[in-house]
Design a protein around this nucleic acid. Structure first.
Lengths: 356, 356
DNA sequence: CGCTTCTATGTTAGCGCTGTCATAGTGCGG
DNA sequence: CCGCACTATGACAGCGCTAACATAGAAGCG
């Protein structure tokens, strides 16, 4: 066999590269370098590294040795371009500091595990303009699929998503019609069920403590569902308190204090989520109020922190991990969009706890 | 206005080789399509889209209109390949569910904002083998820089990082010599200072509650620093409790209960971090112990949750956001590795709180 | 023993974009 | 008017890799 077959132009020159001998781990080792060292063609190296197509054990060993010796790291940009497939899944979430999103990402990573795909994460900070930029930016990497939290997108972002042709999962809610696939649960229904549950427990004077509705539209949907449940019993919220900022334990504490300092006294307060509700529990502790005797509290999400409280929080658990995993599993199982948008309900359950 | 304009020109000639004229990629507007529509060359479109080189206003308008009409999204794989620059920064963190890492990512994103660079995040789950895979995988995208938490890497991962030639920031600790740049603070010193501080407050019978040291080596460094401070006062830990699992509020609660149920009674317990310490506070609340009167508690990190507690946690605040931001700023400011490894201390401060 | 079927490897032709150098057009001073 | 410095645009050659199509032996087979 022809040993020194230089298919392409040989790159001679006083550059930082040296002969094909010493294992000098340098940036700029290419397939051609490995192929030359192993005395095979580039495509053979490529095939062996990807476990694609047949290969003689002896050749394989020689190639792998050459890879090790040169410290070769494949260039995915080139690989993706050549095969028009990036092995990437784009993910856009509004936040990473709200623990529910890292949990979703955990599910996504679990589904991706062993698939050879990798997630590229974008964080929109609850800002649709940033989300639009992220959509463009991630689409530019030609992902095989996209996962994006929520249904709220700018028209441009929606157009890009639709026009991209890649499979799209809109997750965390199912109260609207998705572009392609929705995985999550109904927040309106969750809010409604919360109301029904608490009415069933005998509460009648409902208070609400929430955070920014513009950013967290899902929190508003739950609120609306709650109000609907109350309305169906001829009731309405007796008092409401809402911060313009994001949800946090500190905000929940402050907002409950503010709520109780003014206006009618509720017998139960529903919080926009567990972070806020945990803050509410802290306020009660500091103020000497014992839930649910003096005041009942109810959250949403079913976070670990709420369940580790001295008095476990009464709340509703959503399946974040399952949502992320299911979304990616469905996306990878069927690489083309179905004729009709699909919706998967990952559900939720009430955690009775001891605060309501 | 997602009007249904004939965005993607329908291409026929589905034959395997339809000359070099009409591209009939299933789905994908390319520069060539835009160029044809705008009646300019591809390079002109490329230059205008990148704001690179001169362009007549009329041409620019025509090109931008064509881009809009076709819904063109640049292919970054191709762009990166051609210019050998991906505009990517690889980031590897051990976890996203531990809030400190999203906070670091916040700092990284802040530094990246407006730079045109994008972060690609890998999560190692505190597993060095996974970290090694991630290093290879991220390096394959030819990032301009890498940020990685900690100094602990497999030999192979270290070799890849060193050999890649790209700038590397090892963050969150500075107790070892970095490959290139370290940004963070000394955990040994933090542990030592914790000990000194508590000794100064009069505590003498120290207990320790921790979590998995194999995964979280930095927690161990703090422990070691604490022990050193005690030793310098002729003391040692009177009792220790450690879970094999990760840190969590629930684990902290259980471990403190276990610690108090057996062996000598401490007058202060130092926790491996704020999550664990918060669990400790919860245990005290449930057990009727009032800190610091009955038992003092001390954490690490300075998380919001600890400060929102009815009794704010005594702890040490580290600057996660600053660490992430500083690391990326330094990396981008100087694109080649300095002759000597650099170390930046982002420090910490004691939050007195009210539990110790 | 001619012919099909594998297996192992190579050759060719781009993937979509950008760096580099070349080429027209333009205003302007001398 | 010529040369000069620009400005605006284009032609061309790859970046590093892989799909698709060869090719050449080695079996398999009736």
């Amino acid at each position: 066999m022809p040993v020194t077959k230089s298919t392409k132009l040989k790159r001679e020159g006083a550059g930082p590269r040296s002969g094909t001998r010493l294992p000098e781990r340098r940036q700029g080792v290419t397939l051609a370098d490995v192929a030359r060292l192993a005395e095979v063609s580039e495509i053979t190296v490529s095939r062996i590294l990807r476990n694609h197509g047949p290969a003689a054990p002896a050749t394989r060993d020689r190639v792998l040795a050459a890879v090790r010796e040169t410290g070769y790291v494949p260039n995915r940009l080139a690989g993706g371009l050549a095969s028009s497939g990036s092995q990437l899944v784009g993910v856009i979430v509004p936040s990473l500091t709200n623990i529910v999103f890292p949990e979703v990402l955990g599910g996504i990573r679990a589904a991706l595990d062993g698939s050879g795909f990798q997630a590229v994460i974008g964080v929109s900070d609850y800002d649709l303009a940033i989300e639009e930029e992220l959509v463009a930016s991630l689409l530019a990497w030609r992902p095989e699929a996209m996962v994006i939290a929520g249904f709220d997108h700018t028209p441009a972002a929606r157009a890009m998503l639709e026009g991209s042709g890649v499979r799209i999962a809109e997750i965390m809610e199912i109260d609207s019609t998705p572009i392609d696939l929705a995985v999550g649960h109904s927040h309106v229904q969750a809010g409604f069920d919360t109301g029904q549950y608490l009415l069933g427990r005998g509460y009648r004077r409902f208070g609400y403590v929430g955070h920014d509705w513009n950013a967290d539209r899902r929190a508003r949907l739950r609120h609306d569902g709650l109000v609907a449940a109350l309305a169906s019993a001829g009731l309405s919220l007796v008092t409401t308190q809402r911060t313009e900022g994001p949800s946090s334990v500190a905000a929940g504490r402050e907002q409950l204090a503010a709520l109780l300092a003014q206006g009618p006294k509720p017998d139960v307060v529903v919080f926009s989520n567990d972070d806020m509700a945990t803050g509410g529990v802290f306020h009660c502790m500091a103020a000497g109020l014992v839930p649910p005797r003096d005041l009942a509290l109810f959250g949403f999400n079913g976070l670990d922190i709420g369940q580790a409280l001295p008095t476990p929080l009464s709340t509703m658990r959503s399946n974040r991990f399952l949502t992320g995993r299911t979304a990616v599993e469905m996306l990878l199982a069927q690489r083309t969009r179905p004729p009709q948008p699909q919706v998967i309900d990952t559900g939720y359950e009430i955690l009775p706890g001891a605060t309501a």
